[in-house]
């Protein structure tokens, strides 16, 4: 199957600081990729580069065979890049429903389907975005991204800052999206053990470079590798 996403030799950063250097990766249609690494290794920069909010320095980003690296964010979004930012960035002055419909594009993910998927959002559809709890905001951020009917869904540390019980709920949602619905996506995470069972493949970043790439199942079984690069102890 053809790769949906192909990144070649990507170096990127903010301002003068180069955060990512010479990163390459490929992602097939229907595949979910976990991007792991400690704080500050360039995980978010990788996501931001695909979305288009980072200053790109060099390299190419092909989405469905088309190089999107020079396009502004709104055009990338139109071509199918969906984003759940780390800060969630809910439009606080818009209602829950408006957050979704303001950016919705036609496709299988209608407002109704998003609400079916997240019943809690439906209950709060008329509340202001600012009134939601952290977990609800994360659900809304995902629902909003789904409503753009993306070909590629990018999630930046979705479990960060959430209570354990909410994390469990979120993981069920992600499992449903990537395992049952067959969405293509990249999930940046610190919690390797929680995210590896959901994804097909994984890569580990260190100081802006890819230091490991392989199947998620194999990495999950390789306690030494997890320990070495991520400081995750077996358990």
């Amino acid at each position: 199957m053809a790769d949906l996403l192909a990144i070649e030799g990507l170096s990127a950063g903010y301002g003068r600081a180069v955060v990512l250097s010479d990163v390459s990766l490929r992602l097939a249609e229907g595949e979910a990729l976990a991007v792991l690494g400690r704080n500050g290794v360039g995980k978010t920069t990788l996501i931001d580069s695909i979305v288009g909010v980072t200053r790109r320095i060099s390299g190419s980003i092909l989405l469905g065979g088309r190089d999107i690296a020079a396009l502004p964010p709104e055009q990338r979004a139109a071509l199918g890049v969906g984003w759940v930012p780390q800060e969630r960035n809910i439009f606080r002055s818009l209602s829950v429903e408006e957050n979704i419909t303001a950016v919705a594009r036609p496709g299988p993910w209608s407002l109704q389907r998003v609400f079916d998927f997240f019943p809690r959002l439906k209950e709060r559809r008329h509340q202001a975005g600012s009134s939601l709890s952290g977990g609800e905001q994360q659900m809304l951020a995902i629902g909003r991204a789904l409503a753009t009917n993306p070909r590629l869904l990018l999630l930046d540390e979705p479990t960060e800052g959430l209570a354990p019980i909410i994390v469990e709920e979120l993981l069920r949602v992600l499992t449903a999206l990537f395992r049952d619905e067959g969405l293509t996506g990249i999930i940046v995470e610190q919690q390797a053990r929680k995210i590896l069972p959901i994804t097909h493949r994984a890569l580990i970043l260190e100081r802006g470079q890819v230091v490991h790439a392989g199947a998620s199942g194999e990495l999950l079984a390789d306690a030494a590798m997890l320990e070495r690069h991520l400081g995750v102890t077996a358990g």
Partner: peptide, 27 residues
């Protein structure tokens, strides 16, 4: 501003133009 896509997109962009752009709003 409340009911149409354009209106809502404008309000979203007024709040955070960069995020709105990343969701495809041509501000």
């Amino acid at each position: 501003l409340r009911k149409t896509y354009v209106g809502k997109a404008l309000r979203a962009a007024a709040e955070d133009a960069d995020i709105a752009a990343a969701y495809g709003v041509d501000h």
